[in-house]
């Protein structure tokens, strides 16, 4: 826990799991969960590098921005997903390939 490699290992693992979720899931909400995992992995990296470079707080600011972006993204994405569900009665992202029907 006192070396940066363990944190980078955990975050790369989280990133790969999130990537796997994004490219294999067919449900739009599950894809959104994969994106959240990827953003969390990036955040761990920001905070870890911030600690191991002499407790430079800039990394914390970056991860705050990422958290805010994730919140905005989740709100808009869920609004879009619910709209797609109301219009097409499915949230399978393969069926929702058209913008209009």
């Amino acid at each position: 826990m006192d070396s940066i490699n363990s944190y980078l290992f955990i975050s790369s693992m989280l990133f790969c799991l999130g990537l796997f979720g994004v490219i294999t899931r067919r449900n739009a909400i599950a894809v959104l969960m994969g994106v959240e995992l990827i953003l969390n992995a990036a955040n761990i990296n920001f905070v870890a590098f911030s600690k191991f470079n002499g407790m430079n707080i800039d990394g914390h600011i970056f991860s705050l921005m990422v958290i805010v972006l994730a919140a905005a993204e989740a709100a808009v994405a869920l609004a879009i997903i619910i709209n797609i569900y109301n219009n097409m009665n499915t949230i399978n992202i393969d069926d929702a390939a058209e913008l209009k029907r």
């Binding site: 955990i10 693992m13 989280l14 799991l17 999130g18 796997f20 979720g21 294999t24 899931r25 599950a30 969960m33 994969g34 995992l37």
Partner: peptide, 8 residues
């Protein structure tokens, strides 16, 4: 890690 694997 394990709960992330469970998620996906």
């Amino acid at each position: 890690i394990m709960s992330a694997a469970f998620v996906v």
